[in-house]
Design a protein around this nucleic acid. Structure first.
Lengths: 237, 237, 237, 237
DNA sequence: CATGAATGAGGGTTCATTCAT
DNA sequence: CATGAATGAACCCTCATTCAT
């Protein structure tokens, strides 16, 4: 084995290891946020949950805030990556939006760690890395231009949609949200946007492609550890 | 002067003094929350803003949380007291709801300290003492029974309304929200509830009784001090 | 009624009232010490227990320490006043000592508030106002001169007696001390002093005059309130 | 150097360092207790004496109480370890007890930091980790079975012995206690237990093996620093 | 890079004491 | 004298961060 190869190998292994630890910290952060909220002793709990030394943490994240930003970004990107292919198959703006919202809410409903994380992060997550913002502006404008939606400032429409989503997800934490809440909520949103009630009802009943959460995703791994290990008591909001 | 009178006088003076300090602390808390957000380390800033000693604080609020609860309660109650008389004059459920939302949003728009406080408090305020919850369930049910609204679980409707309101208020902080946003938002909400677009448009154009904020209210006093004294830099979310 | 008489009357009433409050504070202090130990927040608990205002406290005791000294003094004096007449009837030094110890321990056994107070106060009480020290030196010396006791430094003998008493009283707090412990303990002490075992056994079996605790004594009043009102949980040593 | 060795080395160094700091804190605690007494506010003084940061303290002891318990345990264990070998050479129960008490008191007499610590800790130390309790119950029972001691409840005998010891040690603080006090006290105790005066006198005159305090023991190290550094004024009881 | 002991600034909280009424 | 709100020094404790190994 040549030296070059050896060095390559060494650095590649190191890089992989580094990436694994980073992921582990992000997962742990998500679990901790979901349980304890955005307050207080994040780092200590995160390193404990990740079983990593205190000092190591700073090899990955300069500060508290950097950790949250990284997590929010990763989290949003993952969701976008999962929903995007489904949406791209659809042409009709209203159906695009309806399907995105429904997919999103259904996914959240099946993933408590995400639900609680979002509920606890609240506006801080919304204002920073709202995964819906990637699709929404484009589709809203398209829909308005095609006369499908009432001409409302896009900004207000987005606030309406994301606020509604946030509160509904907050409601999911207690577990009382009915199974078809995503459809009913989407129905409301479509009507709010100006879609005639009859059409809205049909849009929300389109069969939904089930979205698989990849096994090695942040979401899946956090959820797996969230269910089992839960060493911390979950704080009520 | 008899002893009884003396004692009465003494305790009355003490009680008044106590009440004044309490109010002062609540106002200060509102200002601090509006500026710094819900971070844990509120107390020191509150006592500084209120110009009261640290020790005194604990004569009024056992903990950080107790302070927030007291403030949230007082804040909500005040708003309810201000909006209630206006709403009570109205019979039609949709118009009641529309007027309540519009009044609320207009009031907030003219009161930065409240806007920022709500934006920073976010879900914590919503889940605890949402002033809208006093009217909404009743009027939503009435409207559904009269066939004015689509039959949606009241809980979901409330989540939609409060979530939308929260995000819109959050948007107000930057000052970009147009003057007629309350009407446009209310329009969306009414349509979401199932009110036909034409009717919704008319409901949101009813002339609005201007709501006066009493001079000695928490809101007014906090706002007065908020504009002038701002010693702390306002944190961006 | 002449002015002089009126003034006399007024000041007499005032003096009585003052004395009543002072007593009330001392009783309360005893209860608090018995429950919480010598630590921490004495004053606040004492005024609460006495139902007296914070400020008033300082009209009676300048400091924490002054309160304890006053209580220890009053407590010791009361006990001396109760035991003294019984002892004065006795001539024989060994019997004097035996009877004093037995009376003391029996009294304590029937008065939990005192037991706990002594146990919590510990050496601080001993070194300050040991009620036994009033009789012991005199009787020890007399006994030694009469050849009844081994010639031991009086100081050491007193340390032996008071230390033993203190620990036994400490043991009473748990309630496991048997009824005849005072006799057995006194038996040990007499032997330690050099009294021949047979004599010691007889001395501790002399019939004991039952000592009545006056109803308006500190001890009786504290005990009465100790049993009933106990608002504070008693700390284990 | 292999990774495994490096890690081993690292953790061994860390463990040693940790142990050193812990010892340092315990020594300092002993000194502080000896000087200030059991007052609540120990921590600040301890860290000052140990020249360690406040935060570090909490890496070792969760609370004030935990510190005291650790110290009391360590202290008692050390004494037991020192006295045990001497006692184990002896068969006769009365001589065992006599020698243990004499050794203990002589050791204390030569170690002011211990004397003062015990005097200040008082009952709290006795009730928790009385080093005498390790030997006493066993030897008392043996002596009673062999007819050497009067049959007294072991509990009472222990209270007598430990109480006497405590008070005598308390008396040592002032320095007035004569050199042969241990023998005189032991003499009293033996007689109290029922040993005939003549025998008792002989038991307390057995030559005593001088007990060496190991140089790196808590006791020795605390004593060394106690004499020199005394930064705090010693409180009178 | 990993480790974990050490740090110290910063916050929460208590409580003896004062003083205007 | 009684009252009790106000005070602030002093304490407890946490936790992000550093750094020698």
């Amino acid at each position: 084995m040549s030296t070059v190869t050896a060095v390559d190998h060494r650095s590649r292994v190191a890089a992989e290891r580094r990436e694994r630890t980073r992921k582990r910290l992000l997962e742990s952060a998500m679990i901790v946020y979901a349980q304890k909220g955005m307050t207080s002793s994040v780092i200590q709990d995160v390193v404990a949950e990740a079983d990593v030394s205190q000092g190591s943490f700073y090899n990955y994240f300069k500060t508290n805030e950097a950790l949250f930003v990284a997590l929010a970004t990763e989290f949003s990107n993952e969701i976008v990556r999962m929903i995007e292919p489904v949406i791209n198959e659809i042409d009709h703006p209203a159906l695009k939006i309806a399907t995105a919202i429904r997919s999103y809410l259904h996914m959240m409903r099946s993933c408590p760690v995400a639900t609680q994380f979002i509920a606890k992060a609240g506006l801080r997550l919304m204002s920073r890395a709202n995964s819906l913002e990637v699709f929404l502006p484009r589709d809203l404008k398209a829909g308005q231009q095609q006369g499908l939606f009432t001409p409302i400032p896009v900004r207000l429409a987005i606030q309406m949609i994301s606020g509604t989503g946030l509160m509904v997800i907050g409601g999911m934490v207690t577990g009382e949200t009915p199974e078809d809440a995503p459809e009913q909520v989407t129905d409301m949103i479509l009507r709010a946007l100006g879609v005639p009630p009859g059409d809205a009802g049909r849009f929300v009943e389109y069969p939904l492609v089930h979205i698989m959460i990849p096994e090695d995703s942040l979401l899946a791994r956090a959820q797996a550890r969230f269910q089992t290990g839960c060493t911390l008591a979950t704080n009520v909001v």
